[in-house]
Design a protein around this nucleic acid. Sequence first.
DNA 1: TAAAATGTAAACCGATCTGTATACCTTGAA
DNA 2: TTCAAGGTATACAGATCGGTTTACATTTTA
Lengths: 191, 191
Amino acid sequence: MPALSKRDQIVSKALELFYQHGFNATGIDKIISEAGVSKKTLYNHFKSKDELILATLRKRDELFRNNIMRETEKLGTTAKERLLTIFDAHDTWFNSKKFSGCMFINASAEFSEQQNPIHMLCTEHKRLIRNYLKELAEQANVLDPDLLAQQLNLLLEGAIVEAHVSSNKQGAKLAKSIAITLVSNAMNEAH
Amino acid sequence: MPALSKRDQIVSKALELFYQHGFNATGIDKIISEAGVSKKTLYNHFKSKDELILATLRKRDELFRNNIMRETEKLGTTAKERLLTIFDAHDTWFNSKKFSGCMFINASAEFSEQQNPIHMLCTEHKRLIRNYLKELAEQANVLDPDLLAQQLNLLLEGAIVEAHVSSNKQGAKLAKSIAITLVSNAMNEAH
DNA sequence: TAAAATGTAAACCGATCTGTATACCTTGAA
DNA sequence: TTCAAGGTATACAGATCGGTTTACATTTTA
């Protein structure tokens, strides 16, 4: 049995190509030739390119959140610390090779209709990130966990855009410094 | 003489189509048929599709910044006020019909290589927005205008992404509430 | 009024797109 | 050992892509 199933080979390569070059700019022929798989095999596993994109983004969501959460929780011990170390985790990501922005922001740019299943998956990804922040905020016992989660999420998204569009690697640190104030205020309110 | 030159007809329609459907997803044939112009005319004015995209984004930059600055300065009188009314101006934009995110963030998603001229134009647009914020901050006499400009710019970008990816129309108000704190702190430091 | 510039419509180019079909091969389990 | 499942390679379909060319019409200007 191979290390990766054919399906996983396809998704893995699609993940790489879609992320680096975009969705409309990446053809099926390129994916199959680089994945070393026949076209029939691809269409046996996925009904259409859109289905492949959806499967790819689902995988990306899983990998990305696992990575961010692992890194965040490695760098901070308490929930309060982790509300800030998530910015350091993003900093690491921004400085990684082949960083090309947030794949879900990128997908939303190409599939901008709100009702498009691909766009809806992007919305869901952002909700899950916000929900992770909310859980941390609840554990940190702040007064309004939902508000703090929304605030920090907005800072993260601003930092991601800065990092990608403007190649500004200071975005994460800048966002973190604002976050420190917000977390501090949210804690004081709770006491 | 017509109200619009052929060139302007083309750019105007390209602006609409590229914004709504993306760059790679919008073909030259669609632009010329909707603009009511022959293909030869388009290629007389633009050497290639990439050149048309560049011209379109230059026009978008001009229109967008004019609109945002006019609205910001209509809603606020002093520079300090305007550091906050720019968030209201964005709020109005988010709630406009056919809002599809920031065209420059969208373009950066499809042309993600840093050295690509299209990507570079997006970087420049963001720099000009940040520069406008810096000018306002200088006029408001804050201690570190450049820092405040970077902070507020990051908030604006976070709000834009929230508005587009998550259809969250509260992003502008959320960002503004954070901005109030930042502006207030920046003013105190200066006295 | 004649010439030059700019426009149109449409055919055409070769490449590429998503998706299907055909024919053959390999592999694992009954 | 046979047979079905799932793999390969390749050709093909019909549409569309960016871009060029041709032939003709209109407009502008000298």
